[in-house]
């Protein structure tokens, strides 16, 4: 991966410095139904388009942050810290 990612702490760096954490997910609660649990554990959106996802600056500050990346062009239009995540932006995992 040779595209650049802007770490919220360190600035733009080569993607090789980072580890990918997957698209955002929501964990199932302890009272989840079977279907809700399976959806949270396994089912994914995997969009061909803009995706909100996690990255960690493995070779740098080791902080986790979120990015909005287009999964075909690998263009990243935004990166931000988890604390700056609007609560309602936490997307559902695949609906049960």
């Amino acid at each position: 991966m040779t595209f650049l990612i802007t770490c919220p702490n360190c600035g733009p760096r080569e993607a090789l410095e980072f580890s990918f954490g997957g698209e955002t997910t929501r964990r199932a609660s302890p009272s989840a139904t079977d279907r809700e649990l399976a959806a949270a554990l396994y089912f994914r959106r995997n969009v061909n388009g803009w995706q909100t996802e996690w990255w960690v600056h493995q070779s740098g500050c080791r902080a986790w942050f979120l990015a909005e990346r287009h999964t075909t062009t690998n263009e990243i239009r935004r990166t931000y810290r988890p604390q700056d995540r609007p609560r309602d932006e936490e997307q559902e995992a695949a609906p049960a």
């Binding site: 580890s19 954490g21 080791r62």
Partner: peptide, 16 residues
Amino acid sequence: TAALERWITWWNADWG
């Protein structure tokens, strides 16, 4: 170690 560090810190970040 590296994978677990990512595991632990991710959950910490997600749970805030």
